[in-house]
Write a protein that binds this DNA or RNA. Structure first.
Lengths: 110, 110
DNA sequence: TCCATATATCATGAATAATTGATATATTGG
DNA sequence: CCAATATATCAATTATTCATGATATATGGA
């Protein structure tokens, strides 16, 4: 993971449609969602959603699988991990006590 | 934390100078860094760094304190927490087993 | 093979953002 | 109060990004 990949990922997340799409895919977990269903759910046009999913794909934040005529998209948790890890690298070096609340918040009840 | 704040934060992180600056401030923890020292360290001009710090400030990712003639900047861990929490909200809903590696990576050795 | 469905790509115009030189503001020391 | 230092703001140019309409590609069913 380098700075170029990471800025590309954050750029992908800096647009409301893409951020919401990824959040939905994160919630959807292993089930993912069909591109068209996501467009319908979010009430955006087909080509807009396609373009936005393509940006998320290039950024390594989602992956996809063809499923008949449709294409199913999934959050790429590995990609997410890399981006967040790069950002927070050595966060404890200067102030360990600052890190715990952040971790607690990210940490979900699984 | 809403989608507007979050996209603004990610937009702030989508630019190499700002991402690096925040990473340095994250590593610096409670010591933070003076704006000028950060500009020198990163070899960017004074006004460019000032503009970029201002974007990070508006995004709630850093805070600052005047210190004599200088201004000291710090990573805002509370802001970071909010952004990451919003992104990962309900990540376990669909697939709890996917979350742990991500949390492990973020979790530092403090 | 032909048609319908699902998604992707292309071209374009409108809006946003980035860097830079110049200048302004704020603080300190003399 | 004046000069020096540290940072912020302004104006302008250039470069990116976005949504959109139109079109292309790919798959499945008849």
């Amino acid at each position: 993971m380098d700075i170029k990949q990471t800025t590309s990922a954050f750029a992908a997340l800096s647009q409301p449609t893409r951020l919401e799409a990824l959040r939905i895919l994160i919630k959807s977990g292993t089930s993912g969602m069909l591109a068209g269903d996501l467009a319908d759910l979010m009430e955006v046009r087909q080509n807009t959603m396609s373009a936005n999913l393509s940006v998320l794909l290039q950024a390594g934040l989602v992956r996809n699988e063809r499923e008949g005529r449709s294409i199913r998209y999934f959050a790429d948790f590995e990609g997410l991990r890399g981006v967040l890890a790069f950002l927070m690298e050595d966060c404890c070096g200067g102030s360990p006590e600052k890190c715990q609340p952040l971790i607690d918040e990210i940490t979900c009840a699984c």
